[in-house]
């Protein structure tokens, strides 16, 4: 049973203020998103409709702490089908962003963040790679892109993920 005493009425408004979360309130619960979802098809622990409905009910802790939130493959199958024109995958992503700010950031994402902070790409170009590229006749590309770390400072992303 959902205990509405624990509901946070501001939760849904918080999500609508996140990048991509705008359409959330239009949901009328038709279930087309979850019927279209390739992840839900194989694994019913993930259900986009349920996440959205729980968000609308204000079940903040339940939604944000759920490990299943991160199962969304961001494939946009739901977005294409939503009769209300909600960019469902973007709304789920907005919930993920909010979860990160609230201290529910998966370790894997933090690792990627650090990798990108170091070199600007997920896979650093090792000498071995450079030699291989040379051998194959592929052009040289920059080893490090410091601009990326600059963007991170600008958006204070480390502060946001620190919680």
């Amino acid at each position: 049973m959902i205990d509405l005493k624990k509901a946070d009425i501001n939760f849904k408004w918080e999500i609508t203020r996140q990048e991509g979360g705008e359409g959330l309130l239009k949901c009328f619960g038709c279930s087309d998103c979850s019927a279209s979802c390739p992840v839900r098809y194989l694994d019913d622990r993930y259900n986009p409709r349920k996440i959205i409905r729980l968000t609308l009910l204000g079940m903040k802790a339940e939604v944000l702490s759920s490990p299943f939130l991160w199962l969304c493959a961001h494939c946009h199958a739901c977005t294409e089908r939503c009769p209300q024109g909600i960019r469902v995958a973007e709304v789920i992503n907005a919930i993920k962003n909010y979860a990160v700010q609230q201290g529910y950031c998966p370790e894997g994402l933090k690792v990627q963040l650090n990798l990108l902070n170091n070199s600007g790409r997920l896979y650093e170009l090792e000498d071995f790679d450079l030699r291989k590229r040379q051998r194959m006749g592929l052009p040289e590309i920059a080893k490090k892109i410091p601009d990326v770390a600059r963007i991170f400072q600008f958006t204070k992303i480390f502060e946001r993920t620190a919680k």
Partner: peptide, 9 residues
Amino acid sequence: PLKALDAET
């Protein structure tokens, strides 16, 4: 890869 972390970044 960082979209889930922070879409704006």
